[in-house]
Design a protein around this nucleic acid. Structure first.
Length: 345
DNA sequence: GAGGCGTGGGT
DNA sequence: TACCCAAGCCT
């Protein structure tokens, strides 16, 4: 048997039942693919359910305010996905008369859709013969066929893309593409896969040569930087507070946060009191360290050392918001966790 | 082409 | 603990 046949046999025995596999609706397939970029099925599933419930069609999504889309996306990370999702819904609704483009070449023109996602939609929804190349495919193909090129080099992708395209020619593209990703996610896992139960091991290069844990080759590591955030949880005489939107480049674009003082190092109690009393002359009343020590919030590429300071002010904010209103904004998860625990009591 | 961009789970 | 990884894309 050929690789493709063995793989599909494995899939027919082991496949997962997932809601976006029960449809050929390109809108739902597209939505699922955006949600699942760099995201595990278990984490993305509830978001898929909420989005399809709230926005049954792409037109419904296009009509929404961006703030609502961001709020629904809250907690999923990589928030540019949500902004691009909304932008593309508008493009398809307005420019394409609400008809999703039906070929790889047209689909890849849309915002937030790259080679992987275009191939996924084109094959799953329209059976176009194009191979998906994601993290699973790098792993499965590098091991089975013995490909030692460094996958952290973008140019390496071409090698895998051409192989994937070849493999998909004589089978159902949607079936093969789903199969290779499920196989990578469930059987040919990154660390210590159980090759003793694998029906492809007898013809697998890595198994034969004992290089399963060496493949795929990936050399580059991410550099992590440290940052120190002091969030001022202001409170006026009415018990209202203030939030601001993060704008420009950097993390958490378009999400909300409390007024922020970022420093180069840890701030002592005395230092924060001095800064805050200077920032609000004559209004400053009382400050408390709500977090009792710092919260370390880890992003993929940054370590954030975060403190929340409750600051009471002798004034009434013109644009103050209530605790109820606070919960309508989209926050980074670390701030949202603070809000739900702090205001619950 | 390298680096930025979240969150959560596994080892 | 620290590191890796997860249905990547954008600049």
């Amino acid at each position: 048997m050929m690789f493709s046949e063995k793989l599909i046999n494995w899939y027919l025995q082991n496949k997962r039942d997932l809601p976006w596999r029960e449809t050929r609706d390109p809108y739902r397939i597209w939505l699922s693919e955006i949600i699942l970029q760099q995201t595990r099925v278990n984490q993305g599933m509830p978001y898929y359910e909420r989005f399809t419930e709230r926005f049954p069609t792409i037109g419904d999504l296009a009509k929404a305010e961006e703030s609502e889309v961001m709020k629904l996306w809250q907690g999923l990370g990589y928030y540019s996905r949500a902004r691009n999702l909304h932008a593309t819904a508008k493009t398809v609704t307005q420019t394409h008369k609400e008809i999703f483009p039906q070929s790889y070449d047209e689909i890849i023109k849309l915002k937030g859709i790259g080679q992987y996602t275009a191939a996924a939609i084109a094959s799953f929804a329209f059976e176009e013969k194009v191979g998906v190349v994601d993290g699973n495919v790098f792993r499965v193909l590098s091991r089975y066929f013995g490909i030692y090129d460094d996958i952290s080099v973008p140019a390496t992708r071409k090698i895998f893309q051409e192989l994937a395209n070849d493999l998909v020619q004589n089978v159902s593209p949607s079936l093969f593409n789903q199969a290779i990703m499920d196989f990578g996610a469930l059987q040919c896992v990154p660390k210590n896969p159980d090759c003793s139960i694998c029906n492809l091991s007898d013809s697998c290069h890595a198994f034969r040569t004992g290089t399963v844990n060496e493949l795929p080759v990936k050399t580059k590591k991410i550099k992590v930087t440290d940052r120190f955030f002091n969030y001022l949880v202001l409170e006026d005489l009415n018990g209202n507070t203030i939030v601001e939107q993060r704008i420009g480049k950097g993390i958490w674009q378009n999400l909300y946060q409390f007024p922020l003082i970022e420093t180069e190092e840890y701030l002592s109690m005395d230092e924060i009191i001095l800064l805050v009393s200077q920032k609000f002359p004559s209004l400053f009343s009382e400050i408390t360290d709500v977090t009792k020590g710092e919260i370390v919030h880890k992003l993929s590429h940054q370590r954030l050392y975060i403190k929340f300071w409750k600051v009471k002010l002798n004034t009434v904010f013109e644009r103050g918001i209530t605790q109820e209103q606070l919960k309508e904004y989209a926050f980074p998860i670390v701030i949202w966790n603070f809000i739900t625990s702090h205001y619950e009591k």
